[in-house]
Nucleic acid binder design. Sequence first.
DNA 1: GCAAAAGTGTTACCCTTACACCCATGA
DNA 2: TCATGGGTGTAAGGGTAACACTTTTGC
Lengths: 224, 224
Amino acid sequence: MKDRPLVAVDCIIFGFDQEDEELKLLLIKSDFESGKSTWSLMSGFLNMDETIDESANRVLHTLTGLTNIYMEQLQVFSAAYPDPGPRTIAVAYYALINITRQQKLINRYSAHWIKLSEKPKLIFDHDKMVARAIKRLQRKATTQPIGFRLLPEKFTMRQLQKLYEEILAEPLDKRNFAKKINSSGILMKLQEKDKKSSRKGSFLFKFNPEKYKERKEKGFTFTL
Amino acid sequence: MKDRPLVAVDCIIFGFDQEDEELKLLLIKSDFESGKSTWSLMSGFLNMDETIDESANRVLHTLTGLTNIYMEQLQVFSAAYPDPGPRTIAVAYYALINITRQQKLINRYSAHWIKLSEKPKLIFDHDKMVARAIKRLQRKATTQPIGFRLLPEKFTMRQLQKLYEEILAEPLDKRNFAKKINSSGILMKLQEKDKKSSRKGSFLFKFNPEKYKERKEKGFTFTL
DNA sequence: GCAAAAGTGTTACCCTTACACCCATGA
DNA sequence: TCATGGGTGTAAGGGTAACACTTTTGC
């Protein structure tokens, strides 16, 4: 009989903070060993009665209390973990969540939203996982309409653009961006305006999943 | 202490047959249970002293005797395997190999090259894995110059086009194809001609990895 | 000389990009 | 009335896609 490794599930959790308009990561701080703090991704172990996807969802749910979150498997990382302890392999998932929705449960686990630009060094090969997740997110977000998962239900064109600028790490042209998004026809323009960010106020939009589904069936593909 | 699953490694092995110009899969036929034959991917189990990548290479090497093969991890599949037996998760890899290079070892394992278009039903969730691998290959091949891995060192423009037509499952325009490939500048046109396929003969080409590396460093990206 | 595949350019269209001014509002 | 962000159109250029005829050679 073969030996078996322990299977960990590590979650790269992206959030977009509308306050400071930055992309953030949800990280866990463990203060073991006399003040030397260590940062890591949120992790758990696979149970024998669940699939890996279920496991990842459970881990995320435990931390945030959230369900129905966009999650996708990245890949398996099997680099040797620090020697003592059993052989472990890690399956990495990334998740997209809307930051404002929850804050209660997070603090219980000493989890913190950290700006991507200020990411500390993480344990094990978690840094590699994050790098990989960013690349995947960049591709996915320009290929499928998943960016909306990081925003509240109603959002302004400006917020959406800022989000994509953060994801792609490059500035985008305001007019061209609006043109492209509008021509895709998968957003509903609401009559409401958000007046927080300017005196004039800016129109709110909503993602329209039915419209997207309908177009997709006709061969349309979202591309930014 | 957590329970631990058995970790299998399953290989989706693509080959391009220059004889009949078709994309093929290397599949294993097991004739257990009175004539009822079952098809599957080439599989093995993870050893505790190797990474997953190493494991996949070992499995492939065992079957084909080949080393230095293009392999890439697809993802983990953890669907419930037929009930009896230990809990297993499977890491799928896909590989690209040049069919003509080896045939000896393959037969020992009753492995067969099967046309993609004639793929039988496979055990477990191997069908899902294959479907996934094809999609991945389609994306990768139009994005990075990996198609050459499926051809011998020297090949004609026509063979390359046929290969891409197989991968993408759609016909391509001869002139536009040559134009694009040539303008990428990563092929060397040799003086030799291959005279097997026509009286006139067609020029042979070689992939030029140095040139590709050089261009890539200047920001060039291969796209078909 | 003819059959069979190889090789080669041009044009139209679309999509992408660059770019600047007026509008609405609250203070 | 003015400061602030919101909203909008056009023109040029580059890239993609469609398309047909000539060349070479073995038989």
